[in-house]
Design a protein around this nucleic acid. Sequence first.
RNA 1: AGUCGCGUAGCUCAGUGGUAGAGCACCUCCUUGACAUGGAGGUGGUCGGUGGUUCGAUCCCACUCGCGACUACCA
Length: 924
Amino acid sequence: MEKIYAPHELERRIYERWESHGWFAPSGQGAPYCIVIPPPNVTGTLHMGHAFQHTLMDALTRYHRMRGDDTLWQPGTDHAGIATQMVVERQLNAHGQKRTDLTREEFVARVWKWKEQSGGTIASQMRRLGDSVDWSRDRFTMDPQLSRAVVDAFVRLHEDGLIYRGKRLVNWDPVLLTALSDLEVQSEEEEGHLWHLSYPLEEGSGHVIVATTRPETMLGDTAVAVNPDDERYQHLIGKKVRLPLTGRLIPIIADAYVDPAFGSGCVKITPAHDFNDYEIGLRHGLEQINIFTPRAALNDNVPERFRGLDRFEARKRIVAELTEAGLVARVDKHKLTVPRGERGGAVLEPYLTDQWYVRIAPLAASAIAAVEQGRTRFVPENWEKTYFEWMRNIKDWCVSRQLWWGHRIPAWYDEQGNVYVGRDETEVRAKHGLAVSVTLRQDEDVLDTWFSSALWPFSTQGWPDKTPALEKFYPTSVLVTGFDIIFFWVARMMMMGLKFMGDVPFRDIYITGLILDENGDKMSKTKGNVIDPLDIVDGIELEALVAKRTSGMMQPQFAARAEKATRKQFPEGIAPHGTDALRFTFAALASPSRELRFDLSRVAGYRNFCNKLWNAARFVTMSVGEAEPASGSAPVELSVADRWIRSRFGRMVAAVEAAFRDYRFDYAATALYEFTWYEFCDWYLELTKPVLHAQNASEAAKRGTRLTLVETLEALQRALHPLMPFITEEIWQRAAPVAGRAGPTVMLQRYPLAADYPTDEQAEREVAWIQAFILAVRQIRGEMNIAPSKRIPVLLKGAAAQDKDYTARHHAYLQRLANIETLTVLEPGAAAPESATALIGELAVLVPMAGLIDAAAEAERLEKLLGKAKQELAKARGKLANENFVRNAPPDVVKTEREREADFERQVTSITAQLDCLRGLLRP
RNA sequence: AGUCGCGUAGCUCAGUGGUAGAGCACCUCCUUGACAUGGAGGUGGUCGGUGGUUCGAUCCCACUCGCGACUACCA
């Protein structure tokens, strides 16, 4: 084996082998275990958040596969309606073309082409990350079968009265020219103004003042509203004002919605351009005057001189004219929240249009109940509150989009405008008895992308057909996703799953944290702080990274900032770390916290861990050789260390089992890391050396150690495999034959079971003693600056029978690991030379000073120890002096406290005696 | 405005009603035949503040200060 672990070459080779053998497919045996991937945008690339979630999903998948479950990780991608259409439109624009220069068919063909071109990026990234998805089942939301599912779902919902078409106010994007759902609106606080406008009363005797942030909408006002209890305006209710600039007469109405304390207490009502005003308009039967074109320019419903003006231009003109007319009473600075489109960023306009809606309340009710009843469980549990909060206040879902890329709505219109919903035109004609002579025209609109996503857990398994896959893998086991799409996706899958499958789509919903950069900022292209996960895997030069981060940036100032930040953050680019190190980092990071800062130094640490594991494997293979240590009938004898490491391995596996059960990947990572490094490498490998190198050790003992070495190494690869699939495969291939384990790949081996490694209390006790001894000597060495290579004599004082026993039996370990020259057990009362001291309970470990140790330094060290011991002793005594403590605390707590007290008393006595002795020396 | 979350070592974060932990960073020593991407030892925290419950609170409760996210918004 190479001295340094080099991941690059072997990762690709190994993945290809796994994939070509079809090992990612479900085995067909065992209990079904299924995860559906949150489908990324087909034309996108995977970012750190994806890589993080994929790591966790793959770890779960590999773990369950190795546990013998019939495991499927279902891959696929999403057509991402608006996002994808926008990308292709931008490409057209770059060539001086517009979407509308093409026919719909031409444009859609163009998008498909782009999808074919760029659609492979994600798959190749996933391969590099080691994702063990069943590629043979790859799905795309616009596959024929999944499209059929979309149509079927739409028709069924319509048949059940859960989909309707209606004219109402929607969030309209005047740039993209489409409706959006409430969730796609991003409200941001911006600086604006509050204009106080004066509307004259009809009879000419005075005026009312209304306050507005959008003066241009006054052209569509159809009332002024006051609070019914507002005494200032009682006398005006029912009267009329003359709307400036238009001359229209509009009524003053009373509505409890109006807050008398805000502004003037008078509100202009524009039912066609404000959600609240719309509701008020409905209550009072007000006219709805639409004053905008779809592009949000003023239309023919306004005085001629304003027609055709863009809304922002119109605002200036109207304010100017009103000011001139003396009708602007006041202008205040005002913070307001401006609704913008999630994708395009355009200011949205509440706009009256015909759209399709899902009547959501009945669907939400069963989805709420399912979580209340525990049929689906959120992990961490707290997220169910967020889910409930939204579900209980949910509003109907606008599902139609005025786009070309997506699932066309399965509705047809005749020339009279009657609408028919059906799976296709033939079905529609048959269902409604429409003659061939009736011309039908299909709805031009497509469905919200999230409509097809909502069906994902069952549409991917063949629904609406009753397929074996659907039967087996629905409900899925767990959904792994971020909290940012609980509403968009999770809640909707719950509703649709319950509606169409009659059961929840997943047993557990594991909500991951959000990956932030090392400063706690969201990673975004505009901030220039995104990291391509593969750049961490393969490494990247600084210049290439800068180029990558600044390319395609519209605004040069952003590019400059991104470049500066990048050069500061990665002055030498990013070193290669390998996939396993990145994956292990993600696992270790996956605490229940909702925000996770990604720090490259963590990855470096885990790359070192890979290297450590690699070198441990080198040591084992070099020590054990090619042959199976336990072959034939040769006797095998296990040392205390051999028994100890098996026992410790069992404890570690138990911790990992619990961690996977609880989705505590951080605990799993920690347990594996600590076992591997601190127990297997730091202690066990060292403890094998005295045995393997000893001339007087029996062949049976050597066989036992070799066997344990290679068996533990082999089992450790299986234990680590879900988190670090590549390096473990590579090592396993070498270790397994020697460990007597057959099989083509570690990924199909059984995961170790804690039950197979019962705790060996005695071995653990003995090794703990050995460790304490060695640590005691090392501590003296370290603090007294005695070179590790210097062999030193050690004396034991106050040794009990057991200490003597252990000392005798484990002499070889002590001698080698503490690098001892001689080990002498002092008889009671025997005089000890001046020494440095360390305590193991009542046993004192002495290192004679004889030229090695500076007495003053040792005195200082002991003073410090004494201080600590006294402090702890005082604490313990204080507690025990408290009658209430002794009376009320559980007996075992009191007992422990008494033991501590005794222990510290002994320490204080012993250290004090040593100090006295030293002081004698220092005071000649 | 409502909902939720966070505040623990220099940094990033675990954690528990009874002895406060890890990684990184830092200091000292060491190239010993798996590994310097390493080994050995060490420094470092009044667990945001105040009060309450308790024999005992970093942990539970209340209030408070400082952050943050989400949802809905007053024109």
